[in-house]
């Protein structure tokens, strides 16, 4: 998908990544009412819709920072689909099985489907990474916190009073351990 022409709506993704208030306002003005309307029509309240929208925008922000997210479809279709999927999953989790969503969770935009799918997988992975990070030993957690906070291995080595080579080795071992914890989790297979 990276080879295709980037859509002009990429400005919304970039704006979110840069915490640009004008863009966030524009998203609320242009795209949020439709999502709130949809959720209210499908057994939800405005407050539930508001929370869900904030979670979705947070995921787009995270994905834009960690991956090269380049939209080739309209933001409206992508965002609406993401919110719909998330709402559908929340209803499923609450076992509100009597509730039926009147339409299929697909969009007329095939590309939007693909982007929304990738973002949903990204979100699941983030939650898996978070869970597994907490399972790491305390020494590794502490080391990785310093490594990422300082983002400089020389400074990390100085702060921890260890050699530069040893700091790099420890970092690679700790991320290696985390890699193995993740690969061993049942959820990993589904997300691959």
């Amino acid at each position: 998908m990276q080879n295709k022409n980037v859509h002009s709506d990429q400005r919304y993704v970039d704006g979110l990544a840069q915490n640009d208030t004008a863009i966030i306002n524009a998203i609320y003005k242009n795209f949020v009412p439709k999502v709130i309307g949809y959720i209210r029509k499908n057994s939800g309240s405005e407050a539930q819709a508001q929370d869900l929208i904030q979670e979705v925008l947070m995921v787009i922000y995270d994905q834009a920072h960690q991956q090269d997210l380049k939209l080739t479809c309209p933001f409206d279709a992508y965002f609406f689909l993401l919110c719909k999927r998330k709402w559908f999953n929340q209803l499923k989790k609450k076992r509100l099985q009597k509730v039926t969503i009147n339409e299929e969770i697909v969009s007329e935009h095939k590309e939007a489907d693909q982007f929304a799918f990738e973002t949903a997988i990204f979100e699941e992975k983030q939650s898996l990474f978070n869970d597994m990070f907490k399972k790491l030993g305390k020494a590794c957690q502490d080391l990785l916190k310093v490594v990422f906070e300082l983002d400089d291995m020389k400074k990390t080595a100085e702060k921890l009073d260890i050699s530069y080579a040893y700091a790099r080795k420890k970092k690679s071992l700790c991320i290696g351990q985390l890699t193995e914890l993740i690969q061993a989790s049942p959820k990993y297979e589904q997300l691959k």
Binding site: L57, Y61, Q66, Q126, L144, E149, D151, I175, G176, I182
Partner: peptide
């Protein structure tokens, strides 16, 4: 996975303050 974890750590731990500022603004 290793590469994604690296990006995850750099962002969620390394840029925690920026992330929180975004959350507040939102």
């Amino acid at each position: 996975t290793y590469k994604k974890l690296n990006a995850f750590g750099k962002h969620t731990i390394g840029k925690a303050k920026e992330r929180e500022a975004f959350r507040q603004n939102l």
